[in-house]
């Protein structure tokens, strides 16, 4: 604001209104000051801690070069393997959440009775939190859980399936907490597509498969990309369920566990910060790739007039 008003005082009368109009055109006015509290909040709670962590990661605890914490992470396969372990969990589960949501949301996109009830039921897992979900999974999918007992008494299997305290336990947990999220997002993206487009396609001779493939899917693709990114980020930072229903010392030792151990168990803040930065870089890389894929599609209005 101050830089904007100073030149205005300096310029003469003839150019004054011009500048004022130019400022008004860009929406620069005193109301922008309302942004200040929010900006201060973001700087204090996000930008500063982030920069603090970034500098910390370049200051190894026991001396050495600025990149020593990073080097340590990549040279120790016990640490660096957490990247693959986490990606192996996060990418398939995020993909599953997105792909499973599409047909269900597609079927439920119109108006029908009980839609609100159904969406409420689907939102519940989000509100439960991962710990309760994990406990439920332990009871349900455990060796003595209902699921295994039911299968055994039906004679389908002889021994309980190992569904918890391993990769699959964490996978299920991520799906349970991430699916509602993906479903609701995709449902709202689908509802944003003008239904008359599909009706137009059907009068042009397209059956439902063609309508979905050539009209709905291309218009939905940007939404799928965004949904994938969000569920991926949620899954990549998985922590409680990796410990509770996973195998936290071996197959599900995800990257957030590595960071936690460095910070809380070894008090090596520099190393923990370096791991957190690596996490961030990987997330940004995956999101970047997805956005690159997305940029090949039409992004714009999905209304019928196309305007």
């Amino acid at each position: 604001m101050s830089t904007a008003s100073r030149p205005m005082a300096r310029v003469g009368k003839p150019t004054g209104p011009l500048l004022r109009h130019r400022l008004a055109d860009r929406g620069i006015n005193a109301r922008l000051l309302l942004l200040v509290p929010g900006l201060v909040f973001i700087v204090m709670l996000f930008v500063y801690p982030f920069l603090y962590g970034l500098t910390l990661s370049f200051q190894p605890m026991d001396g050495g070069g600025p990149f020593d914490s990073y080097r340590r992470f990549f040279e120790d396969s016990f640490q660096s393997s957490t990247i693959w372990k986490t990606l192996k969990l996060a990418i398939p589960s995020a993909l599953f959440n997105v792909l499973a949501s599409v047909p269900i949301a597609y079927r439920l996109r119109g108006k029908f009775r009980g839609k609100r009830f159904l969406t409420t039921v689907l939102v519940i897992p989000i509100t439960l939190g991962t710990v309760l979900t994990a406990e439920g999974l332990l009871n349900f999918l455990g060796p003595a859980g209902w699921f295994n007992r039911a299968l055994m008494s039906a004679g389908v299997i002889n021994e309980p399936l190992p569904l918890i305290n391993n990769y699959w336990g964490v996978f299920f947990s991520i799906v349970i907490s991430g699916f509602p999220f993906a479903f609701l997002l995709i449902l709202s993206y689908l509802s944003g597509i003008d239904p008359s487009l599909e009706r137009a396609a059907s009068t042009l001779g397209a059956d439902w498969k063609e309508r979905f493939r050539r009209i709905t899917l291309p218009l939905l693709a940007p939404g799928l990309a965004t949904t994938f990114c969000l569920t991926f980020v949620l899954a990549f930072s998985v922590f409680p369920s990796a410990i509770l229903v996973g195998d936290p010392t071996n197959t599900t030792r995800v990257i957030s566990i590595a960071a936690y151990q460095a910070a809380i168990e070894q008090y090596d803040w520099s190393f923990a910060s370096a791991i957190a930065m690596i996490m961030g870089v990987i997330e940004i890389a995956v999101i970047g790739l997805v956005q690159l894929w997305r940029s090949q599609f039409y992004v714009g209005s999905t209304g019928g007039k196309g305007a």
């Binding site: 008359s196 137009a200 009068t203 042009l204 218009l219 039409y298 714009g300 019928g304 007039k305």
Partner: peptide, 13 residues
């Protein structure tokens, strides 16, 4: 049958 919709329903992509 061919149909022309009130909002045209052109495929925007």
């Amino acid at each position: 049958f061919g149909m022309v919709f009130q909002n045209y329903a052109l495929f925007p992509h």
